[in-house]
Design a protein around this nucleic acid. Structure first.
Length: 486
RNA sequence: GGCGCAUUCGUCUAGCGGCCUAGGACACCUCCCUCUCAAGGAGGAGACCACCGGUUCGAAUCCGGUAUGCGCUACCA
C-alpha cells in the first residue's frame, strides 16, 4: 500500500492539514505500506518561501517520517511538482490531441464577466465552453492558451469512498475545468492525478472538501486510460465557530502549538482522536498503540471541532508522565526564552531540575513554567503590599508574624523543606493564625505571588539567604505602611 | 442559486435492530485531601439520539422527506 501527504507550500501547515498527514502515516505504518511526501507547488503566486521546510519540520516534530519525498528521495521522484512540469505538459498535450481536452483563449476578464452574468441570472456558474469546438484555424495568435478538460455533457460519475460509500455526481453540473494553466503549470486536478498514478498511490486519503472534485479526477484517470486509486475522504476539522479551520482561527499552525509548549506525543494522541477512536473508553494511547490499532473502519464521518480544552488536559497528563530530566530538558528553552533578561544565564541545569519537579503536576503547557517559577530566578519581586496583608490579616499581626518567622528561621541548622515546615507550622498557632493565612503571608513575602508551588519546598530551593532577605524586605514594607497610617 | 457531505450531552466520541430508562472522556458543579494552585479520590448535573413519516414484534441504529450546518462551485489547493 502506498499513500501520500501532498501539501502545497503556502504557509505553516495547520492542525487540520497535519491530521490528514497523520491518518495517512498511520495507515501506512499499520499496513506496512509506504508514506510519501509530495510537495504540490503548482501555484506560483501563493507559494511561500520556506513553507516547504516548515511542512517537513512539522512532520518531524510529530514524528511522522516519510519513506519517499524531499530530502529522503525515492524511486518515483522528483517529489516536487514544480520539478515535474514537462510530465504534466506532455499529458495535457496528449489529451488535447486525443480530443479529450482543448485549448482555451478566453481572457480572465471575459471569464469574470461571464461569472458575474451567471450570478445575476441565478444560473449555475461554470465555463460556457466558448473555445470547446474552436477549430485550430481560428485560434488567436499571441495569446498563451490554457488547457481545459472536455467534460462529458451527460451521464453520471460515481465513485466509492471507503468511509462514505458510493457518491454520485451528474456530469452536467461539472464544467470544463482547467488542467493546465497558461503559465505552463498544471492545476491541482491534473498534477494530482498524474502523480498519484505515476507514484503508484493505492489510497488517496484526503480531506472531505475534495469530494466534489473527485468525479473530475475519476474522469481524468479514465481519459488517460488509467485505473484510479481507492478514495478515502476524511472528515474536516472545524474551528470553534464551526467554520473550516483556517488562518483566521488564531493559533492553528502546528508550529504555534509547539511554541506554546504542547508536547508532540500529546498532540499526536489528541489529533488521532479527532476522527478516529479505538473503542468506547480508551483515550490515552502511545503512537505505537495507535499504529497497531489504526483502522479506516473506525474513522468517523462527521467534522470535528478543534477545541483546546481537552488538548490542555491531555498535554498536562503527558507532562505529568515525563521523567524528571526529560521534563527539565523540555522546560529549559521555554525558561530561557520567557524569563526576563536579568535572570542570570545560562540557567543551571541542576536548579531547573529541582524546580521542574515542583511544577510538574501544575503545568498544562510547558510555557506555563515561566509564570509559575520566575521568582526562583529573579530577585526583584515587584508585588503589591496588599498581597502581604491579604483580606483578613491585621497589619500589626502581619508584621509580627514576619518578625517571628525571621527570628525562628535564623538559628535553623538545616534549611530543608521538612525542617522549615517543622519550625514554621507551630508558629501559626502561636500567632493565633490559621495556617492558610500565615503560610499565605509567607508565600507572598518569599515569592511575591499568591499562587506558587508548595511553600516549604520552594523556600528550601531558594535557599536561606534569599528567603531571609525577602522576609526582611517584606517586613520593611509592612512596617512602612504601619508607620504611614499610624 | 446549484451540487455534495454530514447531523448522539457545550466539546471529542462509543453505539453498526433488542445488551440503550444511550456508555466513556474533556469542560462544569459539589464534597474529600490540602499552606495557595494543581494533582488525586468520591459524587452530580448535562443528549426527548435534528425533525417528520415509514419498515419492523422491536430503531439512535434501516428507508424516504424536511430542516440545519459545513464544503465545493478560481488559470487556489
Amino acid at each position: 500500500m502506498r499513500v501520500r501527504y501532498a501539501p502545497s507550500p503556502t504557509g505553516s501547515p495547520h492542525v487540520g492539514n497535519i491530521r490528514t498527514a497523520l491518518f495517512n502515516w498511520l495507515f501506512a505504518r499499520h499496513h506496512g505500506g509506504r508514506f510519501i511526501l509530495r510537495i504540490e507547488d503548482t501555484d506560483a503566486a501563493r507559494k511561500i518561501e520556506g513553507a516547504e521546510e516548515e511542512i517537513m519540520e512539522s512532520l518531524r516534530w510529530l514524528g511522522l517520517d516519510w519513506d519517499e519525498g524531499p530530502v529522503v528521495g525515492g524511486d518515483f521522484g522528483p517529489y516536487r511538482q514544480s520539478e515535474r512540469l514537462s510530465i504534466y505538459q506532455d499529458m495535457a498535450r496528449r489529451l488535447a490531441e486525443e480530443d479529450k481536452a482543448y485549448y482555451c483563449y478566453c481572457s480572465t476578464e471575459r471569464l469574470a464577466e461571464m461569472r458575474a452574468q451567471q450570478a445575476k441570472e441565478k444560473r449555475p456558474p461554470g465555463y460556457d465552453r466558448r473555445c470547446r469546438e474552436l477549430p485550430p484555424s481560428q485560434r488567436p495568435a499571441g495569446i498563451p492558451p490554457l488547457v481545459r478538460y472536455k467534460m462529458p455533457v451527460e451521464g453520471k460519475t460515481t465513485f466509492h469512498d471507503l468511509i462514505r460509500g458510493d457518491v454520485t455526481f451528474d456530469n452536467a453540473v461539472l464544467d470544463d475545468f482547467v488542467i493546465l494553466k497558461s503559465d505552463g503549470y498544471p492545476t491541482y486536478h491534473l498534477a494530482n492525478v498524474v502523480d498519484d498514478y505515476l507514484m503508484e498511490i493505492t489510497h488517496v486519503m484526503r480531506a472531505d472538501e475534495w469530494i466534489p472534485s473527485t468525479p473530475r479526477h475519476l474522469l481524468l484517470y479514465e481519459a488517460c486510460g488509467w485505473r484510479p486509486p481507492l478514495f478515502v475522504h476524511l472528515p474536516i476539522i472545524l474551528g470553534p465557530d464551526r467554520a473550516k479551520l483556517s488562518k483566521r482561527h488564531g493559533a492553528t499552525s502546528l508550529a504555534a502549538y509547539r511554541d506554546q509548549g504542547y508536547l508532540p506525543e500529546a498532540m499526536l494522541n489528541f489529533l488521532a482522536l479527532l476522527g478516529w477512536s479505538l473503542d468506547d473508553k480508551t483515550e490515552v494511547l502511545t503512537k505505537e498503540d495507535i499504529v497497531r490499532h489504526f483502522s479506516l473502519e473506525r474513522v468517523g464521518k462527521t467534522a470535528a471541532i478543534f477545541s483546546l480544552e481537552k488538548l490542555d488536559w491531555m498535554n498536562g497528563l503527558y507532562i505529568r508522565h515525563l521523567g524528571a530530566e526529560d521534563l527539565r530538558d523540555r522546560l529549559m528553552p521555554f525558561l530561557d526564552k520567557g524569563l526576563p533578561p536579568e535572570a542570570p544565564r545560562p540557567l543551571s541545569p541542576g536548579y531547573v531540575l529541582a524546580i521542574a519537579s515542583l511544577v510538574q503536576e501544575r503545568l498544562k503547557k510547558l510555557s506555563d513554567v515561566v509564570e509559575l517559577t520566575d521568582f526562583f530566578f529573579v530577585d526583584d519581586l515587584s508585588y503589591d503590599v496588599s498581597l502581604l496583608l491579604g483580606k483578613s490579616l491585621k497589619r500589626d499581626l502581619a508584621s509580627q508574624a514576619l518578625e517571628l518567622s525571621i527570628q525562628r528561621l535564623k538559628p535553623m541548622a538545616v534549611f530543608d523543606a521538612h525542617s522549615l515546615e517543622e519550625t514554621l507550622r507551630p508558629l501559626a498557632a502561636d500567632l493565633g493564625l490559621k495556617t492558610g493565612a500565615f503560610f499565605g503571608l509567607l508565600r507572598a513575602a518569599v515569592t511575591g505571588r499568591a499562587v506558587t508551588p508548595p511553600l516549604f519546598e520552594s523556600m528550601a530551593l531558594l535557599g536561606r539567604e534569599r528567603v531571609m532577605d525577602r522576609l526582611e524586605q517584606a517586613l520593611g514594607r509592612v512596617k512602612a505602611i504601619l508607620g504611614l497610617t499610624g
